[in-house]
């Protein structure tokens, strides 16, 4: 074995995934015993092993952006954006969005551009005319949850996925026609979250409903009754 082969084998022996062939180990050993240069190289390699492990661990320490794979799939397959809005949602929801952001709720996905076409076709497609439809939409986004049944889903204006206490959760926004009543609901599986922050801005109220294994944190303006189903 010459020095070039020895150095090559030394490099291979450095990685757990590149185990040396048993037939190579003994000739390498013999070469190291006979060649001070390669023996020194082997010694140095051993000496920096700890440093190497530290570099490897830092190299792999790259946080992955939440929500990106789901967004990418929507883009690849031309599917509906996660963020659905009906036309009038922007103004009324703005205050809610601000308030929710201030109380520790963050938007997982960058808002997707919603075309006028989308907005016009959405209600006809009946994607979310009731809670079950919302649940099946969210399931496709990887969120298996139960939306609150007490709301009037004809008033549903948007379904979004946001980050709350570092996890992806569903946020449903309901707005009554006159836009004086609006509510955003976070759907939080029981016992997986700390109590939502109740310290919110003055014009907003919060109500917590525990039902069907979920905590529904409702941030609202106006009379909440105006958004609920009329029970016969």
């Amino acid at each position: 074995m010459d020095c070039q082969d020895a150095r090559l084998l030394l490099a291979f022996s450095d990685r757990p995934s590149e185990k040396l062939d048993p037939a190579e180990i003994q000739p390498l050993q013999h070469h190291l015993e006979a060649c001070p240069d390669c023996a020194l190289a082997a010694e140095r390699q051993q000496a920096v092993r700890g440093f190497d492990l530290a570099i490897g661990s830092a190299m792999r320490d790259v946080p992955i952006p939440i929500g990106q794979p789901a967004m990418l799939k929507q883009q690849l397959f031309g599917e509906r954006p996660v963020l659905w809005k009906r036309w009038s949602v922007a103004s009324a929801a703005a205050a809610l969005i601000f308030a929710l952001t201030a109380s520790g709720v963050y938007y997982v996905n960058r808002p997707t551009v919603v075309t006028t076409n989308d907005l016009l076709t959405w209600p006809q497609q009946g994607i979310a005319s009731n809670a079950e439809d919302v649940d099946s939409f969210l399931e496709k986004q990887g969120l298996n949850v139960r939306s609150p049944r007490v709301f009037d889903y004809s008033l549903l204006r948007s379904v979004e996925i946001v980050e709350f206490q570092k996890r992806r959760v569903a946020k449903l926004t309901f707005i009554a026609n006159d836009e004086k009543v609006s509510a955003s609901v976070l759907v939080l599986p029981h016992r997986q979250f700390d109590a939502p922050n109740q310290d919110i801005q003055a014009n907003l109220s919060i109500r917590i409903i525990n039902e069907d294994g979920y905590t529904y944190a409702i941030y609202y303006q106006g009379r909440l009754d105006g958004l609920l189903r009329v029970l016969n």
Partner: peptide
């Protein structure tokens, strides 16, 4: 340039890397 033999392993920070 030779590596510094058995010097203590510095903490490797992701941003520095």
């Amino acid at each position: 340039v030779a590596d510094r033999g058995n010097a203590p392993v510095p903490i490797v920070d992701s941003a520095q890397l």
